[in-house]
């Protein structure tokens, strides 16, 4: 554990000084502040922000993460040659990237909200959910980045795979679900749809947030069936559990690969 913290400390102080991270944080500051100024109510701003969060966080985490791991290849080898275990080293490197990315996002969204000020406890809870979803997606897609960069030796292939995964999870998956819905419109689809949403962390995040914002009525019958499932404490627990599982699975797969890899 000590070794993980030591590796993380230096990795973190490297990433925190990266211009990319500063730009990422500023991006969220500008978008959040803009939405708060122009949308009037903070609930609207949170809804607008949700769409940005669901697209930008997976993209930046997976692309920046993949590049970061490739660029750190030689340094990782130098660290592997030191008397420290592979698991500890992986833990330090992974957390040293996922934590500053999460902090950059949380600060970028949190600071404008704090400056504009809001007292409504419901909105506070929604903001907390949004921040939670953002952090989970950061941990999940940073894990995907590590798994890809450790699996594929070729940087160009790794980057292409990273962009493909982002495209599938944020854009194509919804289209596919919609297509399936249209094709099997005559059948009861509630349960298969809920299962499909569990399989994609981006969709899961969206559903959780929409239910918090109480705009599920906008989604008609689907919204009602989602609310009847996720609205129950059991359903909510399952959704949160699935989201947390999505935060843990990619880094665990990457850790497994890191432990066995021939560098």
């Amino acid at each position: 554990m000590k070794t993980i913290a030591k590796v993380m400390k230096y990795e973190l102080s490297d990433v925190v000084r990266s211009r990319w991270l500063v730009a990422y944080t500023l991006f969220f500051v500008i978008v959040t502040d803009g939405l708060l100024r122009f949308s009037g109510a903070s609930a609207n701003a949170e809804l607008g922000l949700l769409n940005v969060v669901l697209v930008v966080i997976p993209l930046v985490s997976v692309v920046f993460g993949t590049m970061h791991v490739y660029n750190a290849r030689e340094f990782t080898e130098l660290l592997l040659a030191q008397p420290i275990g592979r698991r500890q080293l992986f833990g330090g490197l992974y957390l040293g990237l996922a934590i500053p990315l999460s902090l950059g996002f949380a600060a970028g969204v949190g600071i404008p909200f704090a400056l504009h000020g809001f007292d409504d406890p419901v909105q506070r809870r929604t903001l907390a959910t949004l921040l939670g979803i953002g952090v989970v997606l950061t941990f999940s897609f940073t894990g995907v980045a590590f798994a890809l960069a450790l699996r594929l030796e070729d940087k160009a292939k790794g980057l292409a795979a990273a962009i493909a995964i982002w495209l599938v999870t944020t854009v194509l998956y919804d289209g596919l679900v919609l297509l399936l819905g249209a094709m099997f419109a005559d059948y009861p689809l509630e349960r298969p749809l809920i299962a499909l949403m569990m399989l994609n962390p981006v969709d899961l995040g969206r559903v959780l947030m929409l239910l918090q914002l109480d705009v599920s009525a906008l989604m008609g019958y689907t919204g009602a069936s989602l609310k009847s499932f996720f609205g129950t404490s059991g359903g909510m627990l399952l959704a949160v559990g699935a989201l947390l599982l999505w935060a843990a699975l990619p880094p665990l797969a990457a850790l497994r690969r890191f432990g066995r890899k021939d560098f």
């Binding site: 230096y10 990795e11 102080s13 750190a72 290849r73 340094f75």
Partner: peptide, 11 residues
């Protein structure tokens, strides 16, 4: 001493 000297850029 590895052949390629590449380190974290910002440290």
């Amino acid at each position: 001493m590895p052949q390629i000297a590449r380190f974290p850029e910002n440290l």
